[in-house]
Amino acid sequence: MSDEIGILRQRTIEAAFAKEIYDEMAAELGEARAREILARAVIRMARAAGAAWARKAPEGRTDLATFEATLPAWTRDDALRIEVLKRSETEFHFNVTRCRYAETYRAMGIGHLGAILSCNRDGAFCEGYDPRLKLTRTQTIMGGASHCDFRYRLET
C-alpha cells in the first residue's frame, strides 16, 4: 500500500469532483434529488469496494478479524482516531474520536454532503465485504456528535 494514496486523500479528490457534479445536479433537479442520486452512487461504490477488499482477504476468509485488519487503511494519515471498546469473534466495537474526513469536507465547504460522501459508505462497505457483517451506529462526528459509535456484529 505504500505506493498508493491514502483513503483520506482519495476521498478529498473524489469530494472535489462530487461537489461539482452535485452542484450541477442540484441546479437541474433540485437539492433533494441531487442528494438522492449522489447517495445511491456512493453506496454502490462502497459495496464494490467492500467486495474488492474481501477478495484480498487471506485465503478468501472474511470475518471480523480480517475486517479489523483493514482499519490501518482507513486510519492512515491520522484520518481517524479510534478507541477500541470490544473485540471478539462476533463483535467489534469502537468509537471514532477524531474524523479528518469530516474536517476535510467542512474545510472544502461541503460539510453538508459529508454524511453522503463518507458515513453512507460504512454499512454498504460491510454488505460488500461480508453480508453477515452488520453495522449499528447511532451518531457521527459528521452529524455533530462528539464521536462516532461503530458497533459491528458478525451474524452466524
Rank of each mutant, 00 (worst) to 15 (best):
A26Y: 12
D122F: 01
L117A: 09
F150M: 11
G60A: 01
V84C: 01
E89Y: 05
R55L: 08
G144R: 02
G128N: 09
G143W: 01
A41M: 11
A69V: 06
R76D: 14
R76E: 15
C148N: 03
R35V: 08
A115G: 12
I37D: 01
I110Q: 13
E36V: 06
T62C: 10
N120R: 13
A102I: 00
G143Y: 00
W74I: 07
E36Y: 06
L113T: 12
D149I: 04
A102L: 00
A145L: 02
I82Q: 03
Y152S: 03
L133H: 13
A107N: 13
E127H: 06
F150H: 03
A51I: 03
L117R: 10
T75G: 00
D63Y: 13
T140V: 08
D130N: 13
I37L: 15
S146Y: 01
A39P: 05
R151V: 04
P58N: 04
A41W: 03
R87L: 02
R106G: 00
R33S: 11
T66E: 06
G144C: 08
I82A: 04
F67V: 02
A49V: 03
V96F: 06
D149R: 14
T62K: 04
G123D: 08
A52E: 10
L71V: 06
R47K: 15
R40Y: 05
H112W: 08
P131C: 04
E103F: 03
A65K: 14
H93M: 01
T66F: 07
C99V: 00
E59P: 00
E28R: 15
R81W: 07
A79R: 14
R106Q: 11
L38M: 15
E83A: 13
E103I: 04
A32R: 14
E89L: 08
L113Q: 12
A79I: 10
T140G: 00
A107R: 14
W74H: 10
R61W: 00
G111K: 10
R35Q: 13
L117G: 08
K134F: 02
A49F: 02
T70Q: 12
H93E: 10
A32F: 03
P72F: 01
A52W: 09
T136L: 11
V42I: 15
D77R: 12
L135F: 05
Y105R: 09
G30W: 09
E36R: 14
L113M: 13
S118T: 08
R98I: 05
Y105V: 02
R40C: 02
I82W: 05
Q139L: 01
G143N: 10
R33T: 14
A51F: 05
I141T: 07
R35E: 15
A115Q: 11
I43Q: 14
A39R: 15
W74M: 09
A57N: 07
G114R: 01
A48F: 08
E89D: 15
P131A: 08
F94T: 07
L85K: 15
A39E: 15
D78G: 07
A39I: 06
R81M: 05
A73G: 09
E36F: 05
M108F: 14
G111M: 04
D130T: 04
K134Q: 14
G144W: 06
Q139T: 06
G143P: 01
I37Y: 10
P58Y: 05
